[in-house]
Design a protein around this nucleic acid. Sequence first.
DNA 1: GGAAATTAGTGTACTTTTGACACCAAGTCA
DNA 2: TGACTTGGTGTCAAAAGTACACTAATTTCC
Lengths: 242, 242
Amino acid sequence: MKTNAPRPIESDLTGSDFDLSVDNVVFGFDGDQLQVLLIGLTGEDMRPEQFHMAIPGDLVKANEGLDEAAHRILSSLTSLKGVFLKQFYAFGAPDRVIEEKDREWLMRSRRYPKRRAVTVGYYSLVSIADYLPVASSFASKAEWCPLADIPPLTFDHNEIVAAGLERLRQDVAHHNIIFELLPEKFTLGQLQRLHEIILGKSLDKRNFRKNVKRMSEVVPLDEKQAGVLHKPAQLYTYKKSV
Amino acid sequence: MKTNAPRPIESDLTGSDFDLSVDNVVFGFDGDQLQVLLIGLTGEDMRPEQFHMAIPGDLVKANEGLDEAAHRILSSLTSLKGVFLKQFYAFGAPDRVIEEKDREWLMRSRRYPKRRAVTVGYYSLVSIADYLPVASSFASKAEWCPLADIPPLTFDHNEIVAAGLERLRQDVAHHNIIFELLPEKFTLGQLQRLHEIILGKSLDKRNFRKNVKRMSEVVPLDEKQAGVLHKPAQLYTYKKSV
DNA sequence: GGAAATTAGTGTACTTTTGACACCAAGTCA
DNA sequence: TGACTTGGTGTCAAAAGTACACTAATTTCC
């Protein structure tokens, strides 16, 4: 129905109140496996077994942008600053925060605990050696957890992690980002293991190195690995081209 | 600072009230160029020259999911039903709805016109021949507009369209979706033109056809084009593989 | 000091994919 | 019947991908 005439105000009927949050899926690589940064949400009268684990996220403030909020929240809960963060999906199922187990924490920490919450997911990639998580604000702990050992998390955080991982894989397969996840100096073996871990399949060493040698951004250093119990590897670094 | 002890409720200080909306960037292909579906937002006392054009979007209801909202809103404003819609990005800059020119419409149509609005962008792909937009609800018109001729739109809708186009290009380059945008029966020439238009570069005809012939989903029909002023082309259709 | 263990590092042959390139065919219109 | 327009086809060379096996450098243990 087309109507050019004045009409009743429609949106009044459709709008609603929402909480808006940001949740960060932070992947870390320790040279061996992928980990995810989790925080503990402790309640006043909770015993340690009742810790709820979650990914670091919180409500967005009135006057900050989403990216800005993601950085602030990650930093305030885990002290990780200056990391690469990329928005990957908005999660807005109407029932995403209504599970019984999560209610106590919501009651304590939200002004409107029953309000529907929509969250925007960000993912990140860091080298574990470069960042030491330190819990603060409402996080009672902040620690790395191997991807395979992730416990049930609050809300739909398990789904968010899964979606973040899928997006990470896509981005890596299309030759993006991966260098965010390595220490400044790395060996080709580490780079290959990282690809294998993220992509979930093994790669041929010679072919892999052939490809890397075509990337002008990966440059060898005048330095070798030390303190390892085998032949030391050449170290490389990543120079972003302008 | 780590604190296991009871602590003040932090989120009370950070939360805020948001409007949550969905905006749809609907691309249509007419065999010749890409168009975008726009609606007109008319005010009671606006003259036609003062129409504000926008992409079809509105507030999400309290009890519906985001995908669901995107379909409802698109259908209620333009009558397009059953189209493919894909979420691509959340836009949440704090100042995205504060421009002077947009205020009148907000005052009239929102319960809290000054409230910050976060929107989730969806894009879609349809064949123009298959869908006739019909304006309803608060849309005073609903019509296709060639990509190159898009006027200044309300809010940050021009940015949203640009971001949607970029994402469309990525998805097409990775061999997704394109068949959503063609009529049921199409010629290889149309398919190639569509790729060229979306990707913004020209492709070699023989190489293109070589590639298409490798896709088992594209099957020739027992039918040829008719009514064209040149050699009629073989018609093909797309069969989704199970 | 030598042996064992461990990871680093290297090249070649085959297959597949991509990219460049030019002409005839079938229909409409004047 | 000739001019115009789009449809339709094959080959060759270059680049990228894939499969595959041995020697080299270091540590630790005996």
